[in-house]
Design a protein around this nucleic acid. Sequence first.
DNA 1: ACATATCCGACGAAATTAGTCAATTTTCTA
DNA 2: TAGAAAATTGACTAATTTCGTCGGATATGT
Lengths: 165, 165
Amino acid sequence: MRLTTKGRYAVTAMLDVAYHSEKRPVSLTDIAKRQNISLSYLEQLFSRLRRAGMVEGVRGPGGGYQLSRDAKLINIADIITAVDEPLDSTRCGGQGNCQNDQPCLTHDLWMGLSEQIRLYLSTINLHDLLQRKNVRRVAQRQDRRVKITAVITAPREEAGAETGG
Amino acid sequence: MRLTTKGRYAVTAMLDVAYHSEKRPVSLTDIAKRQNISLSYLEQLFSRLRRAGMVEGVRGPGGGYQLSRDAKLINIADIITAVDEPLDSTRCGGQGNCQNDQPCLTHDLWMGLSEQIRLYLSTINLHDLLQRKNVRRVAQRQDRRVKITAVITAPREEAGAETGG
DNA sequence: ACATATCCGACGAAATTAGTCAATTTTCTA
DNA sequence: TAGAAAATTGACTAATTTCGTCGGATATGT
């Protein structure tokens, strides 16, 4: 279980989808604005998330992504492993070939740690996260800051007060 | 608490010191051979470990490094934080400035995870690790494979069978 | 004196991560 | 049917980190 910013972005984006996709799919453009992640990078991430069966893409205007199953059934560990390359074998992680085809001195230690992390993150699912007060507060702040493109054919409005907080 | 190969190398090297330094200091050259870590990289790591007060360097022939306190009093979390830059502030780790001076959506989640990892690694010290059967077995295998420079003025021996496994 | 070995800092290559760009396909709406 | 919205794909680039090298300086045992 590797921990990189890639995985963190993925979890953040999935949380955004879980929070906003009850009525309609969530476009990556909206996620990009709210979460300050580049659209192109989100495309990469959701390509993997989709192939991992965690989200479904809906094409065309008004489309976007939505969870492919209940938020309670998607835990954080799943999301992270979905977007990170499974290069457990190259590093000391997978097999015990860390030192000339033999396990290195601390092989078991890192295996145990990896398992600990996985266990911890497996206990947390998207639904749980959304219940947390801090998460909801941040999500509401983001919604206020960013005018999304929810109404499809709405006339272009001059959204004032962009710079303010 | 970041987890990189740097930290893994440091823990491995410290474990090597703990295992071998009961009688005399352990030279970085020996660690390099046993653990397959480059001497120059070890110098970097031990520079930090020394400044963190975990090891003491002994100069001159027969010198090397030894633990500065009992192996029971050195835990894994300490070692890793000693060699890794404390760039918690730049990443989402330290303050809550992950998104425009505000905490990002998953800030608390990563803080909690970080704490979990730290707690887990704090419970393991070098002495504990050395008691593990797998660790001892690997250490003994390494000792057989590598002829160390224990005897200072020993005549140079042609150590054969280098390419094999 | 000399060899061993820590100590120190700067440098550079290789690997990995993060992010961009360009193009295609699908689907909705008019 | 045209046009726009949006997913989908893959190659490419930039930035960062890791890993390792080099050249020295200092200390110390024989």
